[in-house]
Design a protein around this nucleic acid. Sequence first.
DNA 1: TCAAAAGTGTTATCCTTACACCCATGT
DNA 2: ACATGGGTGTAAGGATAACACTTTTGA
Lengths: 333, 333
Amino acid sequence: MQGNFSNILPSGMVEIGLNAAIASIADDQPQILIVKPEETRTDNWEALPFGPFTPRTHRTLEIGLRSWVKEQTDINLGYVEQLYTFGDRGRHAQQDEIEPHIVSIGYLALTKWDKDQVKHGGRWQNWYKFFPWEDWRDGSPEIVGLEIMPRLEEWAMRPQTAGSPARPLSKNERLKICFGDGQVGWDEEKVLERYELLYEAGLLAEAKRDRRPSAETWTDLPALGRPMHHDHRRIVATAMGRLRGKIKYRPVIFELMAEKFTLYEMQKTVEGIMGAHLHKQNFRRLVESAGLVEPTGEVRTHTGGRPAKLFRFRREAMLERPAPGVRISRSAG
Amino acid sequence: MQGNFSNILPSGMVEIGLNAAIASIADDQPQILIVKPEETRTDNWEALPFGPFTPRTHRTLEIGLRSWVKEQTDINLGYVEQLYTFGDRGRHAQQDEIEPHIVSIGYLALTKWDKDQVKHGGRWQNWYKFFPWEDWRDGSPEIVGLEIMPRLEEWAMRPQTAGSPARPLSKNERLKICFGDGQVGWDEEKVLERYELLYEAGLLAEAKRDRRPSAETWTDLPALGRPMHHDHRRIVATAMGRLRGKIKYRPVIFELMAEKFTLYEMQKTVEGIMGAHLHKQNFRRLVESAGLVEPTGEVRTHTGGRPAKLFRFRREAMLERPAPGVRISRSAG
DNA sequence: TCAAAAGTGTTATCCTTACACCCATGT
DNA sequence: ACATGGGTGTAAGGATAACACTTTTGA
């Protein structure tokens, strides 16, 4: 239908898609809000809430995003942050090329958990279902050693295909930077870089859908993680990386916490986001000494152990430090 | 002309503007590339290279950007990074509202200095001409104490105007976070936050152009810094903030340096970008001990003092550390 | 000779990390 | 009793910031 206009349109007109990666935490598991399959159009892969930006009805991009989310999931978003604008024609070019070009703007939104919040149209999904290689809370995930590294090492050995651009880094160097090795460890912030590498190597279902040549090699092997509609998994990867980075220098973690919480709950939330274990004693000290939280005076019982003091976010922290966030100190177990 | 289509267009079609903040360093001064006034359309304020994204001719957003820059300034860009997508209708709404809505995508590009590089259409401008309050290399700039703080403090005292959104932070809190006070110092990364605050307070020529109510108060006083076309100064602010942050954890500084350089040149470059003085001895030690550079074995004479060893970027640094960048240690003088 | 930049050495301090250990509750 | 989480103390090691000082050139 919209393709009819392609002859008369000024060549600079495009459609803008607004996409929301809405994150929350339930039972220590980070969740992403998925719209029901009925809402999904061209495939039956899971999709984020999304819709076109219509300047006539939406004064700003963010207002447009909020209204699509409200319409599709009945959620009134709080914290919202723009991530990135994707405009590759190469991606998702399965049909004819006449289709109107879509540019996707991805957003990250954070919301406190409320199991009754979604009244229609939405459903939560553990984000590690899409990125099983990103959860290192129980040590190195099996999928990394068994599935990913062997295939990526094989891919890195293959000669560059003709069409690919001359890159400043070799495939082997990128592999090392993204997935680490003996020397360099796992950098939990490089979620997008790892996703892009797996896509390029043809190991994701999205690569096959988009007819990437590298995907032809693995026709028999299962793809990694659950795929998503259009470029939505790429947007979620961007969201995860951004959140994992931001948590360290902005108090965004409190967008995911209840008003009052124990330090253990806070640690579990941070661990869920980071996909890593933290050192308990140091976490507590760093959080308290940074002035990020203050005790409410109350305690919570039935924690499984001794009753825990309840804390709340200390807003003044934002005024005292240039970069108020959760200092991270990893832990072996 | 394009307005003619507004009746028949699908309501989701918009025009995307691609805008490049191209930075370089000349004589310790960070420079931004400006296109010649002839290229500028609706006003005679300085403009960045920019042009619409036309998916028919440009396969990706970045390719579109590169081709506009090449056409308007004859520069072949190297390092390019997307910054942000701005879509406020409130901004730049001086004419009738029928105009096709423009969404602006801002990019940061870095290029080594070459005075002969720009063969036509472009001109370099010291970026502190647009942001005189951002250069703290010679201590607190006069404009901060004499012009900015008094007016902002007055603005912060004024009651919130009816139309402005309920903000999580008060005006006074935002002022303190952006411009510091006795307790909290100057955070050189908050360039955009400061720009936005000055815009909201009506102290920038752009605010008056956009008919911001707050700008009416200051009709008699001079606006701060040189204004720019459309939202280009906002894009440059985003670029400066991003670059000041990124320099600390990515080796982007070498995009601005010659192949071989002295540590003093490198320090002067970093100081120019950060708008701050660094401690000489510690800078050298941090850079060398981080393995970011390696000596070439050569020396440079005529430095004004003892001959200096030449260094080059050590690419392996990218493989060894998760966040290879310039550790900053400020200095009083 | 002297200014200017290059470069080395040392120390105090703070932050991070790791380890050891005790406390209070529910089952 | 003991498992589980809550909570404190302290010491080693590393990174940072500050200071003092020597070296080598060009003007």
